[in-house]
């Protein structure tokens, strides 16, 4: 996968990203030292159970985390080598929606119910390009056509609640892609849809991605989708990346017990599931991550060391790393 060091910096390079939420019951470290890289045109998966910090990671990349959350000092997010965390308000606005776009997981709530959808797409264009209202509107209609909305001209003046779920997700895609971003952060773009529509949307995304030459960070808890659509995968647990590998590698030889648990729980194609539930136990609250390996209370292989020392990301094979002591001490694995 990662061959010799690339001549150019990677498109997105997240390093030691930490996001804290200060609340009445202490500080929640929702994202804790995440490293993550996306190359140009590449599709990368980010998977993990609910609440592990996937969405916060995506928001942090665009500095959209709102108080009481804040990105910790020492974090870095580089886009084509430029540190987004150091930009002024105006500059970061120029990045949002323009170079990096975000698609949300719940299309109904991500669309403003009181504004016409055409208007919501057009305003994204006008935020970044000096075009007239008419042009922006015309481009919005074009975009709606591109995402496969029939009779786009008429639909442009509809409101979100007048559309079906699939249509709304297409609208969200159109909105995100209106400025031809280099990177799309797709936060569970199909979770809310039923299976056939999921497939359609993903096909559409694929097509558009190829056409625009855009990279995608695909956030999902559906490993089936990851298997089909991504080249590399990051697995997140309790605010941390716990495993990172080429997709094939991950499915063939998962190194982290958590990933193993996830794989064992892959839903069959005809089954729809919102949450991964197969691993016994619950994700601990972000205000009180366990000592040592954060997975140890749920891990079938845990031993004393796991409860006291936090494992770093350890290399299994080049390009494949896992945050588990078993990498060093495979003999501890229980049969």
């Amino acid at each position: 996968m990662s061959g010799p060091a690339p001549a150019r910096p990677p498109l997105l390079e997240v390093h030691d990203l930490t996001v804290n939420f200060s609340g009445s019951d202490g500080v929640a470290r929702a994202v804790d030292g995440v490293d993550l890289t996306v190359e140009e045109g590449e599709t990368v998966g980010l998977v993990g159970e609910s609440g592990c910090g996937k969405s916060v990671t995506a928001l942090a990349i665009l500095r959209l985390v709102e108080p009481p959350g804040h990105i910790a000092h020492g974090s870095s997010v580089r886009l084509g080598g430029r540190d987004l965390l150091a930009l002024g308000a105006k500059e970061i606005r120029a990045v949002r929606g323009n170079h990096v776009a975000l698609v949300f997981q719940e299309p109904l709530s991500a669309l403003n119910p009181v504004l016409r959808i055409g208007n919501q797409i057009a305003e994204a264009i006008r935020a970044h390009e000096a075009v007239t209202r008419g042009t922006a509107r015309w481009r919005a209609v074009e975009m709606l056509t591109a995402v496969g909305i029939p009779d786009a001209k008429r639909r442009a003046s509809a409101y979100a609640h007048q559309l079906s779920g699939g249509m709304r997700q297409r609208v969200l895609l159109a909105m995100a892609l209106a400025c031809r971003p280099q990177l799309l952060l797709a936060d569970e773009p199909t979770t809310a849809l039923d299976v056939t529509i999921q497939a359609e949307i993903l096909e559409l995304l694929d097509g558009l991605q190829r056409k625009l030459g855009m990279a995608v960070l695909l956030i999902t808890h559906n490993l089936g989708i990851v298997a089909e659509r991504t080249r590399r995968v990051y697995v997140m647990y309790a605010g941390q990346i716990v495993e990172e590998a080429a997709t094939e590698q991950l499915f063939a030889a998962p190194a982290h017990p958590y990933t193993e648990g996830l794989l064992a729980a892959i839903p069959r194609l005809d089954e729809r599931r919102d949450r991964l539930q197969a691993i016994p136990g619950q994700v601990p609250p972000a205000t009180a991550w366990p000592e040592g390996c954060r997975f140890h209370p749920r891990c079938p292989h845990a031993w004393a060391k796991c409860g006291t020392e936090m494992p770093p990301l350890l290399e299994v094979t080049p390009g494949h790393r896992a945050r588990c002591w078993l990498v060093k001490e495979p003999e501890r694995r229980k049969k």
Binding site: L59, L62, L64, E66, R93, A94, V95, R96, G97, N98, A101, L102, F104, E106, S109, A110, L111, N112, P113, V114, L115, E123, A124, A127, H128, L172, M175
Partner: peptide, 26 residues
């Protein structure tokens, strides 16, 4: 707090537009 406000910000709109066009209307 609504998701569409975050979505509006993610589009790169100014705070003013977010507030007056998106938040206030609703």
């Amino acid at each position: 707090d609504a998701e569409y406000i975050r979505a509006a910000r993610a589009k790169g709109l100014t705070e003013r537009a977010v507030l007056l066009k998106h938040a206030l209307r609703g």
